[in-house]
Nucleic acid binder design. Structure first.
Length: 266
DNA sequence: AAGCTTCGCAACCGCTCTACA
DNA sequence: CTGTAGAGCGGTTGCGAAGCT
């Protein structure tokens, strides 16, 4: 480090043993914070930034100067994947480690590791894609919309209960699937036990009552995640769906939620 | 042994955010 | 609302040590 001075005459460069001693005794006497007062109090010809940095990155007794354990390295990789270059946030989850240390360690040790890991993942994905191409995808047979007569009890809200009736349903390729081909088709029946639905014979037009599709949509909407998850869980699901963009300006407001997530993961 | 290159890390710089008058 | 100062953060720099030729 150059041992020069700034235009204001403040010393720059590496800290001497004497300077460290002065800073340490100052912090011991007055405590952390009010960094603008520290140079004056300590009798140091250093700027407040330099004093703060020296304390935070080197003199603070809570700093763990041991080399990182495998667990810590693994944690760092995971946190970086989740948080990006938010060194202070990563350091906050690694007791005794400073943001500067984490940043330096990342650049010297883990960046290459992370890049090679990413390349490996990309290779794996390519392999999977190749595999996909060789396998003919299964054709999914989805029941089509069904048409009801105008006096259908379903449409007239006369439907009383459900049962699994014997029905025929047109499939995508035009063939007709029997009820045994359809997994639990919930067709409304009237109070006499008759099936209210009629086989779909025409095209998939807007004039047709597309209740079958609607029913499926309703199922997805109403019987989806929400009913499966407790309120607390859904909160985290929402969080996870929002969090990946670390450049989000609202990031800080989500940190408390992140802490909760980590508590759960731990 | 000398010169060169690479690595690790402390420190600096510039920017943003926040509080306050 | 605006300007200012303090605090904090991430990117970058550059020195010294270690390794290599």
């Amino acid at each position: 480090m150059e041992k020069s001075k700034t235009r204001s005459g403040v010393r720059k460069g590496a800290w001497t043993y004497e300077e460290d001693k002065l800073l340490k005794s100052c912090i011991r006497k007055y405590g952390k914070g009010k960094w603008h007062l520290v140079p004056q109090r300590a009798g140091l010809n250093r700027c407040r930034k330099s004093c703060r940095l020296r304390w935070l990155n080197y003199l603070n007794p809570t700093i763990n100067k041991e080399s990182l354990s495998d667990d810590e390295v693994d944690m760092m990789l995971r946190l970086h994947k989740l948080l990006g270059n938010r060194w202070s946030l990563i350091a906050a989850r690694l007791p005794g480690r400073t943001s500067n240390y984490v940043k330096n360690y990342w650049h010297t040790h883990l960046r290459k590791k992370a890049i090679s890991r990413k390349l490996e993942e990309e290779e794996e994905n390519k392999e999977k894609e190749k595999l996909k191409e060789t396998i003919k995808p299964h054709e999914i047979i989805k029941p089509k919309a069904r048409t009801f007569s105008a006096n259908s009890p379903w449409l007239n809200r006369k439907c009383i209960n459900f049962k699994t009736p014997i029905v025929t349903v047109s499939t995508k390729d035009g063939t007709v699937a029997k009820d045994s081909d359809i997994e639990n088709p919930m067709i409304p029946i009237n109070s006499d036990g008759d099936c209210a639905a009629q086989p779909y014979t025409g095209n998939y037009t807007t004039s047709s009552a597309m209740w079958w599709e609607n029913l499926l949509n309703v199922s997805n909407d109403k019987i989806g995640l929400c009913s499966l998850l407790q309120e607390e869980d859904s909160k985290y699901v929402n969080f996870l769906s929002e969090v990946p963009n670390v450049n989000d300006g609202n990031w800080n407001s989500k940190i408390y939620e992140f802490e909760s997530i980590l508590d759960i993961l731990n």
